[in-house]
Design a protein around this nucleic acid. Structure first.
Length: 594
RNA sequence: UACCCGAUGGUGUAAUGGUAGCACAGAGGCCUUUGGAGCCUUUAGUGAAGGUUCGAAUCCUUCUCGGGUAGCCA
């Protein structure tokens, strides 16, 4: 279905090629996408998904979908399901056979001193019920690993308060001070850690800490906390645990358990990498160990991508929800009619590097247009109608004209659309006092009604307030396709809908959510919200074939843009996916169209 | 100014010691029964200064600028 975007080289793919060439993992490549289920996925996650699945795809490997659910106070089961749905939508027909899932309920197997979990791929074992991976499924294994670290004298139970730990860690430029509990005996540590697990101590009273180096210039090596006490119910493990592993401890070991080879994350984890390696090496796990690689996260103009800010838009009802078509979420883009292939093409084009980057929203829209231009069927729709009457056509006369469904795709065929004496045309396609280079209808001027006649405007009828309410035109009755004057050149061609057969519809026009390209900069992003980001138009007139438009299917309304039928079944509502490129408004004129 | 990372047109991204290329955006043109699409042309770049070299975006030194890191968040 979708075309494969060309594979561009980047530093991560180069490293993988090098690992492959060296045979580091025996020719095996296994990545993972590890969202925390505390929010919905957005275009920034899409970049990571495309990178990780794209690598798995190229290398014949797998990419595990893993919920990074180690913090019970922040996470929610509802997000788990939406994340799975979003990932599946994005990789469908592209890398769905690379999606690593595990048999439902499967837990890591203890293999001597080791733990391993073998994934089932998307293509194998179709009948089995399979689910995403969950870091919380590894809590038992992780606990065992922690005990092992304690026995090696590389971790200890610390009784300092969070404030004390904070203070004693020092600052990036000033060395930290060791915990008073740093030299507890292994036996005492084992006993205390076991009792932490049993729930003997209140939240915040003790932690398990790695024993590394309080003088390390990298603060993440200053005896970081590995486990904290949380008497909180977890969405998956219920009340079984009172201690929960921290990200740094859980993540590297989850990667190890799943047999991940390349653990790809964003730049802010760069300073965590020495800790990632320290944990795996201290446990003396068999090599080759997974390795972490960092890339720069995506920034997009005219929107925000921080979970906190997106959540706020939802909670304060600045938008309709996570899937509002204006949101940069995967659900929002899907609802707006962005094809998954377009989002993937975008992710491929923006590249992967380590420098800070801000991509122009125009590039995303370009990718959407590029895909939709190839695939979307053309239809006629008039958003802001004005009546046009062809005076030299008899009343009640019905004609049918033939319209091409997609000029980019001959296989899409053509359709018949009704044509008659009375039509609706776009109000903007008539100007009583036209600006220079106005190619559309004007008093005394001629224009082509697409797929039908050339008409000449003879009269503009006005109401008492002076508004033009009806245009009376004469058609050149030989100018239809096949007619003797069909090849006459007129400068403008406009679309129309026959009044007698038009369907009423609503259209929702979206613009950028923010007026400024950088709403993240300079404090309050809410002050930069675009008050015109949604405009609802009622009384739009669309061609009759659109009655059968299925929800979620995108059409090109000729000369207007791409529109997707909304989920509302009882009436016709179309959401504007993206406008067409508009060279009229670019030359300094107001937008040619609504 | 502790450590780490980064710096190539307006925005991104290639070039891995040998002609600075591509895409988007911008400008101009051709074509057009979508002012769409397509096609052609074009503007614009290696942060600075030294050094190595026949040759440097690339290697070295210093500087400048930007980002990250001090959660019992991920």
């Amino acid at each position: 279905m979708s075309e494969t975007p060309p594979i561009s080289q980047n530093f991560i793919r180069e490293r993988i090629a090098a690992d492959l060439a060296e045979g580091r993992y025996g020719g095996r490549i296994h990545t993972r996408f590890p969202p925390e289920p505390n929010g919905r996925l957005h275009i920034g996650h899409a970049k990571s998904i495309c990178l990780n699945f794209g690598i798995a795809r190229d290398a014949g490997g797998l990419c595990n979908l893993r919920m990074d659910d180690t913090n019970p106070v922040k996470e929610d089961l509802a997000y788990v399901n939406s994340i799975v749905e979003d990932v599946r939508w994005l990789i469908a027909d592209w890398a769905d056979d690379r999606l690593g899932l595990k048999p439902e309920g499967a837990l890591p197997q203890a293999d001597g001193a080791d733990f391993f979990l073998f994934p089932a791929s998307g293509s194998a074992d179709r009948a089995a019920r399979r689910e995403a991976f969950f870091a919380s499924d590894y809590f038992d294994a992780l606990y065992e690993f922690a005990v092992r670290l304690v026995k090696k004298g590389k971790a200890y139970v610390c009784d300092h308060t969070p404030e004390e730990v904070d203070r004693m860690r020092g600052a990036p430029e000033a060395a930290g001070r060791p915990s008073a509990y740093r030299d507890r005996s292994v036996a005492e540590n084992l006993d205390l850690f076991a009792r932490m697990k049993e729930g003997e101590f209140p939240d915040g009273s003790r932690t398990l800490r790695a024993k590394i180096n309080m003088d390390a210039p990298n603060v993440w090596l200053r005896d970081p906390v590995l486990y904290r006490i949380r008497h909180t119910e977890h969405h998956r493990t219920g009340r079984r645990w009172r201690i929960y592993p921290m990200y740094d401890f859980a993540h590297c070991l989850s990667d190890y358990i799943e047999g991940i080879t390349h653990s790809i994350c964003t730049l802010e984890f760069e300073v965590h990498r020495p800790l990632y390696d320290w944990i795996l090496e201290s446990l003396e796990l068999p090599r080759p160990l997974p390795r972490q690689h960092e890339f720069a996260r995506l920034n997009l103009t005219h929107t925000v991508l921080s979970k906190r800010k997106l959540l706020r838009l939802v909670e304060e009802k600045r938008v309709e929800g996570w899937d509002d078509p204006r949101m940069p979420t995967i659900a929002g883009m899907r609802r707006r009619g962005y094809p998954a292939a377009a989002v993937r093409a975008f992710c491929e084009r923006i590249g992967v590097a380590k420098r800070e980057n801000t991509i122009e929203f125009a590039l995303l829209e370009h990718c959407v247009r590029e895909e939709l231009n190839r695939t979307a069927l053309r239809r006629f729709a008039v958003l802001r109608p004005i009546k046009l009457v062809i005076t030299n056509l008899p009343e009640g006369r019905l004609e049918e004209v033939t319209a091409t469904n997609n000029p980019e795709d001959p296989a899409a065929g053509s359709r018949a659309i009704p044509f008659g004496r009375e039509l609706w045309i776009e109000r903007d396609d008539f100007a009583e006092d036209p600006p220079p280079k106005y190619f559309r209808l004007k008093p005394g001027g001629e224009v082509r009604l697409k797929n039908a006649y050339i008409v000449k405007c003879e009269e503009a009828i006005k109401d008492e307030a002076g508004n033009v309410v009806e245009l009376r035109c004469v058609a050149d009755l030989d100018s239809k396709t096949g007619g003797t004057t069909a090849n006459r050149k007129v400068k403008g061609t406009i679309h129309w809908v026959a009044a007698a057969h038009a369907l009423d519809a609503e259209a929702r026009l979206y613009e950028a959510l923010y007026t400024r390209p950088d709403p993240d900069k300079g404090g309050d992003d809410l002050s930069a919200l675009n008050p015109n980001s949604l405009e609802t138009l009622r009384g739009c007139k669309v061609e009759p074939s659109l009655a059968e438009a299925a929800p979620g299917v995108v059409f090109q309304f000729e000369r207007l843009g791409y529109f997707v039928r909304s989920e509302e079944k009882e009436r016709l509502v179309f959401l504007r996916t993206v406008t067409l490129r508009d060279s009229w408004s670019k030359v300094g004129h107001p937008p040619a169209r609504p």
